[in-house]
Simulated scan of single mutants.
Amino acid sequence: MRNLAEKPYVREEQREVQTVRRQIRKTFTRAEKGLLTLIGAAIVFSAILMVSNYASMYTQNQEISQLQNDISQQQQYNEGLEHQVSELSDPERILNIAEENGMELNEDNVRVLQP
């Protein structure tokens, strides 16, 4: 009698499984091609737009810098002119020039003007 706990020896055949892989070429439909073309055109357009904006910003920054330099030079020139005006309008200087030209100071005829 056989032991029921024993499994009968069954010869297992090893089967080789061959997998066949086919390369599937995916082709795009006409709508997908149109959509990809539209997306590509949008990317190129936005890139061109960004570059042109940066170029215009660069030129405007240069113009601003040049204007600021012009303003500072004009301010320095104006300060020089104000200094000359203050020197030339000094009352002592005016009195000396008047005395050199033969004028005399008469205190009775002096009028004080206020701005």
Rank of each mutant, 00 (worst) to 15 (best):
I43C: 08
R22F: 09
R21P: 00
M50F: 15
Q18N: 11
N106Y: 11
Q75R: 12
R22Q: 15
N109F: 05
L81N: 10
T27S: 04
A98Y: 08
V17D: 04
R2I: 14
I97R: 07
Y9C: 00
N3C: 11
A41K: 06
M103T: 06
E12T: 08
S72D: 10
M57C: 03
A98I: 03
L105T: 06
E79P: 00
S89C: 03
R15Y: 03
I64V: 14
D70L: 05
E104V: 09
E87N: 10
V20A: 08
M50Y: 14
V110C: 05
N109Y: 06
Y58K: 04
Q73I: 12
V85T: 07
Q66L: 07
R93M: 02
Y77S: 13
I43G: 02
Q68E: 14
L105V: 12
Q73P: 01
N69G: 12
R11E: 15
V51D: 07
Q84K: 05
A41Q: 10
E107H: 04
Q75G: 02
N109P: 00
A98F: 10
M57G: 02
K7E: 12
V51F: 15
D108M: 09
Q60M: 05
T19K: 08
Y54M: 09
Q14D: 05
M50V: 13
G34A: 05
Q60A: 08
E63G: 00
A98V: 01
L88Y: 03
I64K: 07
N69T: 15
V44E: 15
V51S: 11
L67C: 02
S86T: 11
R2S: 08
N53M: 13
Q114I: 13
V110E: 09
F28S: 04
H83R: 11
N109A: 14
Q73T: 14
A5M: 11
Y54D: 05
S86L: 10
S56W: 02
N61C: 00
I39W: 02
N101E: 14
Y9W: 04
R111N: 06
V112L: 14
Q76E: 14
I39H: 03
A98P: 00
L105S: 03
L36P: 01
A31K: 09
P91C: 01
I94K: 03
N109W: 04
V112E: 12
M103E: 14
N61D: 10
I71W: 06
T37I: 02
A41T: 08
E99S: 08
L38C: 04
Y58N: 07
R93Q: 03
N69A: 12
R2C: 02
